[in-house]
Design a protein around this nucleic acid. Sequence first.
DNA 1: CGTGGTGCTGCAAAGGTTTGCAATGAAGTA
DNA 2: TACTTCATTGCAAACCTTTGCAGCACCACG
Lengths: 392, 392
Amino acid sequence: MGHTCVTATTSDEGAAVPVTIRDVARASGVHISTVSRTFSAPHLVNPETRVRVLACAEDLGYRPNRAARALITGRTHNIGLIIADIANPFFPPLIKAAESQARHRDYHVFVADTNEDPTAEEELVHALAKQVDGVLLCSPRMSNSLIEQLSREVPLVVVNRQVTGLPCVLMDVGQGARSAIEHLVGLGHRSIALLGGPRSSWTNREMRRAAGAAARAGGAELTVLGPNAPTEVGGSAVAEQVRRSGVSAVLAYNDLMAIGLIEGLDALGVRVPQEVSVVGVDDITLSRLTRPKLTTVATPTGAAGRTAVDMLLQQDIESPRGARGSGAGTAIGVRRTTAQVMLQTDLVIRDSTGPGPYARPARPLAAPRGPDPHCPAGPGIPTAATGDAVAS
Amino acid sequence: MGHTCVTATTSDEGAAVPVTIRDVARASGVHISTVSRTFSAPHLVNPETRVRVLACAEDLGYRPNRAARALITGRTHNIGLIIADIANPFFPPLIKAAESQARHRDYHVFVADTNEDPTAEEELVHALAKQVDGVLLCSPRMSNSLIEQLSREVPLVVVNRQVTGLPCVLMDVGQGARSAIEHLVGLGHRSIALLGGPRSSWTNREMRRAAGAAARAGGAELTVLGPNAPTEVGGSAVAEQVRRSGVSAVLAYNDLMAIGLIEGLDALGVRVPQEVSVVGVDDITLSRLTRPKLTTVATPTGAAGRTAVDMLLQQDIESPRGARGSGAGTAIGVRRTTAQVMLQTDLVIRDSTGPGPYARPARPLAAPRGPDPHCPAGPGIPTAATGDAVAS
DNA sequence: CGTGGTGCTGCAAAGGTTTGCAATGAAGTA
DNA sequence: TACTTCATTGCAAACCTTTGCAGCACCACG
C-alpha cells in the first residue's frame, strides 16, 4: 500500500562462485594448511611462498570464511550491541562510535533494538550469544540479577548501569545533576522539579539521588514527577502538572523530555526561560537547534561507545572462549578482573535557563530577555561546572 | 582522559559451557541426527522422541550454533545494513524498522556506518559478504557500476538509488520536490533556490530534475546552489549565499540542511518565513520541534526499511546460495526477477513557509504572521499534494 | 507368505578452516 | 660424520551441524 511498482525486470546474475582456501592451495601448489597459515600466522611461512599464495588469493578473489573460522577458533570477531531505542537520538552517536572502534579492531557489530522491552533484551542476548564474542548492553531495562546470569553465557559490558562484578561504562550523571541543580540555585531558583525517566533506569536513580542532595545543600525544594516515558511526548505530557506544581525550574531526565516539556509549556502559554527554566541531559544535536537552545548536561556518548568496545575486546582477548578439545566446561571459576569506568559530564549553559524568583538583582547573571529573543548569541559555552557557584 | 576508574574487582565467572547437539543426543538416548531433525525438520521425528529431545535440550540449555549451521546450509540468517551516516536522523527509523522486520523473520542485522565514504562502502560489502545472506545498501555513494559488480558477490537491495537490474526501494522525491515547488509557487514565490546535497546522491539528481520542471511549469525561476554537505553545517554555510541570491524561497536537500539554513539566516537577521520560506525533505522528528516548525516533504523511512528487508529475503529464499556439493559455480547466469518499488512522499505544511512577493492578497492562504509567532497551531496536516495548486 | 509402503532412525560425508604433530631438509655444532 | 636445531611444510583431526541414503520394524494388501 502506498507504493507503486515501477519496473520488474529479469536479468543475468552471476552467482557468487565461492572460492575457498582449497582453490588457492591448488592454484599456488601448496597444501591448504600453508594457505591457512599465510593468513592467520604469516610468520610461519616462507616469504617466497607467502607472496605466491597471496598473489593467487588476490587473483581468485579469495576471502576467508568467517563462519568456518569461528567454528574452530570459537571466536566470531563479531560483537553485539543491544539498544533500548535506536530512534532515541542519544544512541546513534554511541552506536557510531562503537561500530567504528570495533571495525578498527577487525570486528563487526550486530545491532538490535529492544523497544525498551526487558524481555526482548533477554531474548536478544540469548540469540546473539553464539554469534558474537561479547555483547554491549546499553541502558538495559532488565534486572541486575538477570544481567549477571546472562553474563555467564556470553561476555558482557554494560553501559549506563552499574552491575557489581561486571565491566561497566558509566556517565557521571550524578555530577551532572548536581551541576544542573547548583546552576539553577545560583540563578535564584528555590523550587525545582525533577522529571523522572523510566523506573528501571540506573541513570534515573542516580540523578534523583544527586539532585536531591544538591537541592538540600542549596536550600531548595525538589519535587519529583514521574516516572515518565523518556521521550518528547513523555515530556509534554507533564507540562500541565509542572505548571500546577508552581516550580520555577525543571531538570528533565533527558533532552527529549526537556524539549517536549518546553513545547507543552509553550502550548499552555508558559514561557521558557522567562517563567520556567528547563535543563535537559544528554546534549543531543537537537538541543542546539531548538528555540530556546537547551541548557543541558552533556554526556560523552561517543567516548562511552569506544570505551565499552575496548573493554569488551580486552576482556575477550584475555580469555578466548572455550573451543578445541576440552569436552566439558574447561574453565569454570576463572577469576577475571573487571573494571568500571566513570566518564565525566559537562553542564552546557544555553538559553533555556534564566534568573529565578530569588535572583540577586545586584549580579546580572544574564540580562532578562525580551519576548522575542533573537539570540544570535554564539554557540553555548561548554562549562566544566564543578562545585562552584553554590547558592549564596 | 576525562574518566575516572571507580573500581576494579575480580570475580568468579562461570565460563560458558558450550552444549552441543551431541550432548543433547547423549542425554536423550538418540543419534545426533535425530536431534538435528527435531529442530530443523520436526515432522520427520516421532512425536514422543521429539518431546523427549526438546525436554533434554531445554534442560541443558542447548542453543543451535548458527555458524556451524551456516557452514553447511550456506545461509547465515544474517543481513547487512550499510548506512552512510547513522548520526543523520534520517536513518535511525529506517534501521529500526529493518531490524525489527528482519528479526520477525528470524534474521539478525549487521549495521555498518561508512561516514559517507564510497571506499568504505565497498570494503564493507566485501567484509560482510560471507557473513550475511544479503546486504541493504542505503543511500550509497559509490557508482552504479560498482554496485552492479558487487551484487555478483552477494545479494543486494539498494535503498534511495536506482540501479537497473537490481531490486531497489525508492522514495518518490521527484513527486515530493514537485509538490514543494508547487506549494511555494502557490504561495506567490517566483524566485526559488534549490540547496543541493551530495553530488553522488540519486535523490539529489532526482530532486533537481523534478524541481526544475515544476518551477518551469509554474513560471518560477530556480537557482541551484551546491553541492553541499547534507548536514546542519552544510545548510548554515550557504545562508549568506542564499541572502545574496535574493530568492524568496528555498527547497533544501534535507531537513538537516533546512534547519541549518534557518539558523544561518536567523544569524544574518533574515527571518523565516516572513522574508524567506524554507522547505526541507525527510520529516525527521527534529523538524517538528524547531521554531518555526519545518514545512517538509515526508519520506516513508520505516516503510522503506521494511520493504527492503522483505525484498531481500524474498529474493534470497528463491535462490539459496550455493553450498553442498556443486564444486564449481553452480548457477552462473540464473535469471532472477528484480522489482523496483517506489514509495510515496507527502508534503507536510508547517510554519517555515509563508506568502511570497507575488501572493494574491484576495486569497489569504495563511494570515501573514506577526514577528512573534506563538503558533499553538496543532500538528501540521499531512497533505497528499498531487498536482493541484499549480500557479495561476 | 511375499511384496511394497510408511514412519522413524542411524550412519557418514560434507562444509571451510585451524592447529598439534610429524616429516622433511638444511644448516650448525661437536 | 653424527647429532641437534631450526625453518618450512604436509597430514589429519576437530569444530557443529545438516542431509542423502540405507536400514529397520511394522502394517496392509494380495
